[in-house]
């Protein structure tokens, strides 16, 4: 075995590290715009999915531009409210939805609450709000679409970063998400009760409960907490609109 001097070892290590660092930062900088665009398109797609406006995406030649066009055509308006239910001017709803985590760490009074409006001449307007919470292994998030009675859910989309495959990860399947359609956020006397995930299965006519996933209890409970925490700040706004 050849003997290398200490100086050689140090210089070899330094040169190697410098080359590697330059290469990686160059590549990261080059790919960053593409990656950010992917994340953005993913969010737009999720918003569209929550109101079932995804027709034609699979057949589209350029998936990304198609999603962007679809989003521009269908999501007619977006605005930001605060927890008192007042409109806030000058803030971009999509920018908040992108950085929802940072927004949620702010005190409730200062938080901007984004709402996206999907207009549909037949079904009326639907209002989409983003939600974000902590799952079992990582973040879970989603978009909740609400009918123009500000009470009935018209659709939901959930996603997760690292929930257990086959158990908690099932929250993003249609089998779990479809039953949310038609559930109500407020009870008959107008109190906010959110939607709960019922272990062992919800009663078929329960307006506030959906079936839990067996084996995915912690994820389901986290999802329930996410819905409550993220929808609760909107209550004042919803109530104002109802009256």
């Amino acid at each position: 075995m050849k003997n290398f001097s200490n100086l050689y070892i140090f210089s070899f290590a330094s040169v190697l590290v410098i080359i590697v660092a330059t290469l990686l930062s160059f590549v990261a900088e080059q790919l960053k715009p593409l990656q950010e665009r992917n994340v953005e398109i993913e969010k737009k797609l999720d918003i569209l999915r929550s109101v079932d406006m995804t027709a034609g995406i699979e057949e589209a030649e350029n998936r990304s531009t198609f999603i962007e066009e679809l989003f521009a055509n269908n999501i007619s308006e977006s605005f930001v409210v605060n927890s008192k239910g007042e409109l806030i001017d000058g803030r971009d709803a999509f920018a908040i939805a992108k950085e929802l985590k940072a927004e949620m760490q702010m005190p409730l009074e200062e938080r901007g609450l984004p709402i996206f409006v999907a207009s549909d001449p037949e079904a009326g307007n639907r209002y989409i709000v983003p939600v974000l919470g902590k799952g079992l292994w990582g973040p879970i998030w989603g978009y909740i679409a609400i009918n123009d009675d500000y009470n009935t859910l018209s659709g939901t989309v959930f996603a997760h970063a690292a929930e257990t495959p086959g158990l908690g990860s099932e929250i993003n399947t249609d089998k779990f998400m479809d039953p949310f359609k038609g559930k109500k956020l407020f009870d008959e006397s107008g109190n906010f009760v959110s939607v709960t995930v019922v272990k062992g299965g919800a009663e078929p006519n329960d307006p506030h409960g959906v079936d839990a996933i067996s084996g995915g209890t912690i994820t389901c409970k986290a999802l329930e907490k996410m819905l409550w925490d993220c929808l609760n700040p909107y209550v004042n706004y919803f109530k104002k609109q109802m009256n």
């Binding site: 075995m1 050849k2 290398f4 050689y8 070892i9 070899f12 290590a13 190697l16 590290v17 590697v20």
Partner: peptide, 13 residues
């Protein structure tokens, strides 16, 4: 070129 004493680190890098 790789000094044997730090070869594992170099491989990892």
């Amino acid at each position: 070129l790789i000094p044997p004493r730090i070869r594992i680190i170099v491989q990892l890098v």
